[in-house]
Amino acid sequence: MSVEEQVGAARPGDEVVKEARPTRGLRGEAMRRLLRNPMAIVGFVLILVFVAVAVFAPWIAPYSPKDNSWLSEVRPGVYPGPSAEHWLGIDPLGRDVFSRLVYGARQSLLIGVVSLAIGATVGVSIGLLAGAFGGWVDALVMRLVDIMLSVPGLLFAIAIAAMLGQSLTSVMIAIAVVNIPIFARLLRGEMLGQRAADYVLAARSLGISRAGIVFRHVLPNSFTPVIVQGTLTLALAIVEAAGLAFLGLSGSDPSAPEWGRMLTDAQVALTSAPQLALYPGLAIVLAALGFTLVGESLREALDPKLRR
């Protein structure tokens, strides 16, 4: 690395190395590491399938998810299993399970993305406030965050969803609120760590303003774990959404396709047709697994300490 220094000017050999790797940002390097990780590829495939199913649900699902025209075929204890017409069988209320599963992806993705957007935005803002100002602002904000974190997540979401009443919006808000303190504390901690970094001292020694230091130096260096957390939070939001729906807190329409509600509906037939609970359960696990795998791989790819 010191050859070019010794000669005073770059030597041809050095140029070749730099040329082979043109100006590539940190993100480019992280992306390359990410794509070398098989776990990440599995995660990406799962997410891709999940998103594709959600987006193209009307074209994939053979029937309407609310269509209960096969109610006559259902008798207590007898639920038609997989067949050519109904790939995953019929549920206790006479609806096509496969169609409900496909449309359920839509609901899960919607709740996940919206609640993440709200939770991350508010959480990041609060964390930024605490991390940028420090002192009593930080102390006050972080005590509030601690209080929020002291309540178990799902319990907190149930309380909020119950308070706001049965609707999709209240589910999204409930899950978002649960995630606010997680993002706030993450960003704040990262920013406090970065504030002590050498490059921040160097920037201060050059007279860069406080706002400049926060927004151009500390924040961009603190954001990596937030991106990772965002991916992991999507997984969590899908599970939480299913949990709330399972408890009957999702929407006012009981026939709406929702993986959590499918679990509830399968309860009555658990002894005779356990596969009815298995399908939505698997869907929840696979979707959540996709985001978790990508999130964890992202953490590894971005964390210089874990670089292999």
Binding site: L26, A197, D198, Y199, L201, A202, A203, R216, H217, P220, N221
Partner: peptide, 8 residues
């Protein structure tokens, strides 16, 4: 090595 902002 540490006195320059790594992401800018």
């Amino acid at each position: 090595m540490t006195s320059l902002n790594p992401v800018v």
